[in-house]
Amino acid sequence: MRLAGRRECGTSLALLRVGIGLTVLGTLVSIVSVGLVEVLFVDVSAGGYFSLTPTWPVRALGGPTLGTAWTLVATTSTAAMALTVGLGGRVAAALTLVGWIGLTGLLRDAGGSFDALLRNALWLLVLAQSTATLSVDCRRRTGRWRSDARVPAWPRWLAIYQLGLMYFTAGLHKVSAHWIPGGDHDALYYILQWPAWIRWDPSWLVWAHPWTRAATVATWCFEVLAPLWLVSLWWHATRDRPGRLRAFANRIRLRWWFFGFGVALHLGTWLLLEVGPFSAAALSLYACVLTADDLRRPTRRG
């Protein structure tokens, strides 16, 4: 009850807001720029190309027609812009979420984990007071772009849980003989050759093969041990309490090891594979792992 009522500086949630807003905006721009609006968001019966499953926002607007598609694209883009600059508080987040649910649910096969991650992050932004600082709302309220106004901390903890849950269950899904330690550890070696996903010609794997095996083991361990990251963040948040494990984890800066590996994992994924907006969405959630203290005094981390 006490944790749920805790308040803190809103910088982490503001950074999450900016990251998710930009990611949604960038994704929509990429869809529009290659002419996919008619293809992905208009049903074959209305002049489109594929049979779509209408989502509740699309049904409310009259079905998956060209008019509905452009209305939703325009509304979601405008709302995402407002979300990025911090204008309109929760309303901007809610409108972006409704638009995103409406658009991305029409042809689910064309989506991926990035859609689900963005939807979940947007819902957390609806719950959070994310425009307390670094926002137009803050500027209008206080005359300054930054504020130390304190906001409820529980949405940030839900975002942290979301990140840990994603990694942990992704690790549980990895039961392939190529992933599990003790096998050939060739999962990443093969994944980095998938024609549908790779960015570069895979001939570089000739010399990088041993590294891909090490990365396979490290990735699997990182994901399966993700709950320990959550615990290490909790131990840091309650560092004034007693306990040897808590003290040890804080001394070795356990939370920073997970943070560093996670950032490297997503940057590596982005560099080698075309996974859409997944890396950007995931890294936006990393803002929630940082406390106000981390963001204020980056050189004196605990």
């Binding site: 509740w56 689900a116 269950t169 039961v175 050759q193």
Partner: peptide, 23 residues
């Protein structure tokens, strides 16, 4: 899940396909 977009499944390259197709 439907109203708030909270549905999720994190397969994330769960099983490397050793026989992928090319277009």
């Amino acid at each position: 899940y439907a109203c708030c977009g909270t549905d999720q499944t994190w397969r994330l390259f769960a099983a490397p396909d050793r026989f992928p197709s090319r277009l």
